[in-house]
Each structure stands twice: as structure tokens, then as C-alpha cells.
């Protein structure tokens, strides 16, 4: 089971990284979504895996429970990552609507900076 989870995290990470290295905003958003899955599962797995031991206390008997703390952290992380994705989508959308394409790289704009000598003359 551990191998299944670890390899899934690895596969999601690899796919996510590959996609965020693409040149278009939408691919990057997809990549970040995959990375969010990977990170969430990774964090969750840091509480170690357990089957049939949900951290719901039983009033009747003494049971073993899985680690609740990573779960609580991941729960909020899932919701926050949605917020983050939404902001990114909106930014990407705005950039696309105002600039004609949804590339993420700036090109040929670095050349236009001031000549070095001018910096000291405010």
C-alpha cells in the first residue's frame, strides 16, 4: 500500500512539474492542480497510512485511530488550494483578455531597461 501511495505522489508530482514548465497559462494551472493533489496526499501520508481506523472516537471500545492532525491540516489545504487555483485562473484569464495570448513568459522586454550609467542621476 505504501508503495502505491508513494508512486502515486511521485507520478502526480512529475506530471505537475512537467506541466508547470509549459509555456501556456492553462497548462500551468493544470500542473498546479496536479501538484496540489501530490502535496496534499504527501502531507496526509506523513501521518502514516492506516486502514479502517478513521479518527472518529468510539464511545464503546478502545480502538486504534489514524493520525488526525495531518488530516486536519490537509483539509484546510484542499480548500485553500481551491482558492489559489481560482485566483490563478482569474489572473490568467485577465492576462489573456488583455494581451491576446496566454503565454506566461515575458519576451524581449528586459532589453529596454535604463543604461547602467543613468542609475545614479536621479
Amino acid at each position: 500500500m505504501e508503495f502505491v501511495v508513494a508512486s502515486s505522489v511521485g507520478a502526480l508530482t512529475a506530471a505537475g512539474v512537467y506541466l508547470i514548465l509549459r509555456l501556456r497559462a492553462f497548462a500551468v494551472i493544470l500542473g498546479l492542480a496536479l501538484l496540489s493533489y501530490a502535496v496534499n496526499v504527501f502531507l496526509f501520508a506523513s501521518g502514516r497510512l492506516a486502514i479502517n481506523m478513521p479518527p472518529i472516537l468510539s464511545p464503546y471500545e478502545d480502538l486504534a485511530y489514524s493520525d488526525p492532525l495531518p488530516q486536519a491540516l490537509v483539509l484546510t489545504a484542499i480548500v485553500i488550494s481551491f482558492g489559489m487555483t481560482a485566483v490563478l485562473v482569474m489572473v490568467a484569464l485577465g492576462a489573456y483578455l488583455e494581451s491576446e495570448d496566454d503565454r506566461i513568459d515575458l519576451e524581449d522586454e528586459a532589453e529596454e531597461g535604463d543604461a547602467p550609467g543613468e542609475v545614479s542621476k536621479l
Binding site: 508503495f3 512539474v17 502514516r48
Partner: peptide, 18 residues
Amino acid sequence: IALAAGAGVAALAYVFML
């Protein structure tokens, strides 16, 4: 790059889960 990163994360997760 992606495969290296993925492999690293997978290995890390696998090791600590054990």
C-alpha cells in the same frame, strides 16, 4: 526535471511511510 522531482518525492514519501 519532472521525472527527477517525481522520483525524489516518491522516494521521500516511501521512506518516511515505512
